[in-house]
Every structure is written in structure tokens, then in C-alpha cells.
């Protein structure tokens, strides 16, 4: 499969007298195959938007390689810009223009036929409100307009930063359907979102970024499988026996997390060994359930951003893994 988007070793450092040096991107890698819907995930401040802005020529990187549709950036950006539709962060439009004016001006700048404006307005459900000023739109309507502006070029690569932000449940479902439809028609979609359930439903593959570095990537099922870690939930007939059970399991080399009414074990290949080990100690299991992981738990684990009772995590507090620790290079 050919790569539509390739990023290798991308670095961006911000230097400020007040705030010192901050590495927004620290050797970030990413690869998106043609025709995929690719999820791009990361905690706040992890470098997602910086990556997208750098890719789109809005920010100058310090080093690294980027390519879209096989053409090196930023040199070839003017040549490929016509094939890339993008919205970055919250949609921003001139408030006193109507949606039709906004898209009409973009279409004219891009030398596109006028009827394309009506096509995308229909596609995002703004046909009947297209003549109204953008300042009267809700956040969800502005989001639809932003998606319309990105689709206007009928791009080969569509980059959407939080496209479901502000959408109502019906809108989110419509957006999901639209992404699928676009992908089926051969468009490659890069989707940045914090709604991980949506990402898991829509995306073929994901890249997870934390503190400017890639911490996981690949097909969604593969990422989930790689981080399921054989987790098992154990309940005992007597809750008071939990500390004794935790002690016995720990001595046997099992990683144990003690919860108020159960134990959470990880790194367990065969759950039956747990049952046998505890029975030998005279402890009787009332529940032994393999725990299925979802993207959210993988994300929280990889980025170390799961909430901890009594602590207030700051924006830049998240995991940083060695580049060697990630799976493969160049998305391999």
C-alpha cells in the first residue's frame, strides 16, 4: 500500500525568554496509507496540532522529513495543496460573511467551479442555512462549514482536527458516515479527535503521540492487541481475603492492582493458573474475567494521562517513551 502522508523525525522547538525551551515535536514519525481513515490521538499539548500545522506549512519545523502524496514538503506544498483539504483546530471564519460567501471566495481562490460550493453545502447539511451570516451559527454549524471548506477541493487527503467538536449526536453519526463514505471513495482521511470511541469505530489505523513523540501506531486492532497485556479481573468470595490473594499473586510474579472489591491482574497468559494458585492458598474465586481493552484505556495507559484520585494532572504531564520502544519505524 502506498503512503499518502509520511513524517520522519519531525522536530519543532519553541524558545521563549519567559517560558524557556519547549519541544513541541521531538522526532515524531507518522505514516498514513492511501484510502485509510487514520486516527491521530494525543493528550492536550502533545503536539497534534503542531504536527498538522507543520505539515500544512503554517509552522516551520526545526528538522525532519515530511511528504504528502509522495512529494516532499514544504518545498512541494504549493503543488500538492490542491489535493489536501484541512481544518486545523476550531473552525474560524469571518463572522459577517455567509457560508456561501465564505466557500465561494475559497472556491474562487482555488479556481473551482461554483457548483462545488452547493455540493459541499448539501453534503454537510448547511444547504438551507447557507445564506446566513456565520456569526449566527452554532459551534456545530461552524464545524460543518469547516468540513465543507475542507471538502471543497475534493481532496485526496483530508485532514480534520476535532471535526466532531460541537456536533450533536446525530451530527457525530452523520460525520462518521461521511468519513466512511469518503474513505470508500478512495479519499484518505486523517482524523484528530479526543472522542476515542468514535476513533475506534471509524478508523482503520491510529497514531498516538505524547510529548511530541509517537508512542503507538498501526491498525487499531493491532494496537489494542499489543496493549491488552492479558488483564484479568478477580473477585473472591470474601472481600477481606483480597490482601492475602494480592500478596500470593505478587509473589508468583503477577502484576496486581488492588481495587476496593476486586483485583486487577496483568501479564496473565492463562487465567486458570490464577484460580489454581489461589485455591492452593485456600482462597476461592467467585469471578475470573479477562478484561477487554478499548482504545481509551490504551490511550490513557500509553500517555499516562489517566486521572489519579487526589492529583491534578498538568497539561504537559504525560508519558514519553524511547523511540526504540515504539513499534517499527515509518509505520512498518
Amino acid at each position: 500500500m502506498s503512503a499518502v502522508l509520511e513524517i520522519e523525525g519531525l522536530r519543532k522547538t519553541y524558545r521563549s525568554r519567559k517560558r524557556g525551551v519547549r519541544r513541541a515535536l521531538d522526532g515524531f514519525d507518522m505514516r498514513v496509507e492511501a484510502g485509510q481513515v487514520h486516527g491521530f490521538l494525543g493528550p492536550n499539548g502533545s503536539g497534534k496540532t503542531t504536527t498538522l500545522r507543520t505539515l500544512l506549512g503554517l509552522i516551520r519545523p526545526n528538522s525532519g522529513r515530511m511528504a504528502i502524496l509522495g512529494q516532499e514538503l514544504p518545498h512541494a506544498l504549493p503543488a500538492v495543496a490542491g489535493q489536501v483539504g484541512a481544518i486545523v483546530e476550531s473552525p474560524q471564519f469571518f463572522p459577517h460573511f455567509s457560508a456561501r460567501d465564505t466557500l465561494g471566495l475559497l472556491a474562487q481562490a482555488g479556481e473551482l467551479p461554483k457548483q462545488r460550493v452547493d455540493e459541499v453545502l448539501e453534503l454537510v447539511g448547511l444547504r438551507d442555512r447557507a445564506g446566513e451570516r456565520v456569526k449566527t451559527y452554532s459551534l456545530g454549524m461552524k464545524q460543518r462549514l469547516a468540513v465543507a471548506s475542507a471538502l471543497l477541493k475534493n481532496p485526496k487527503l483530508l485532514i480534520l482536527d476535532e471535526p466532531a467538536n460541537g456536533l450533536d449526536p446525530g451530527g457525530i453519526r452523520e460525520m462518521r458516515g461521511l468519513m466512511r463514505e469518503l474513505s470508500e471513495n478512495g479519499m484518505t482521511v486523517v482524523l484528530s479527535s479526543h472522542i476515542l470511541g468514535e476513533i475506534q469505530l471509524i478508523c482503520d489505523s491510529v497514531t498516538i503521540i505524547s510529548l511530541g513523540r509517537r508512542v503507538a501506531f498501526g491498525p487499531v486492532e493491532q494496537v489494542l492487541a499489543a496493549h491488552s497485556q492479558g488483564s484479568v479481573r478477580v473477585r473472591l468470595e470474601a472481600v477481606g481475603d483480597l490482601p492475602q490473594a494480592a500478596d500470593a499473586l505478587t509473589r508468583a510474579g503477577v502484576r496486581v492492582t488492588t481495587e476496593p472489591d476486586h483485583l486487577l491482574l496483568s501479564g496473565v497468559d492463562k487465567p486458570a493458573t490464577v484460580s489454581r494458585l489461589l485455591a492452593e492458598q485456600g482462597l476461592y474465586v467467585s469471578e475470573l474475567t479477562p478484561v477487554a481493552v478499548d482504545l481509551e484505556s490504551v490511550f490513557l495507559e500509553l500517555t499516562a494521562t489517566a486521572p489519579v484520585p487526589g492529583q491534578h494532572r498538568q497539561v504537559d504531564q504525560s508519558a514519553k517513551v524511547d523511540q526504540a520502544g515504539t513499534t517499527g519505524g515509518w509505520g512498518a
Binding site: L56, G57, L58, P74, L77, P78, A81, V84, A86, V88, P91, Q92, F93, F94, P95, L106, A109, G110, S149, K153
Partner: peptide
């Protein structure tokens, strides 16, 4: 244009 993000939108079309 700068303040409302219009410039950024335009640069996405004409980089």
C-alpha cells in the same frame, strides 16, 4: 483576516 483565522484558511488553499 489574521484575527478571525481567515488568513490561515487562505494559506491552507494557497500556501
Amino acid at each position: 483576516e489574521w484575527n478571525t483565522g481567515g488568513m490561515m484558511n487562505l494559506l491552507l488553499w494557497r500556501p
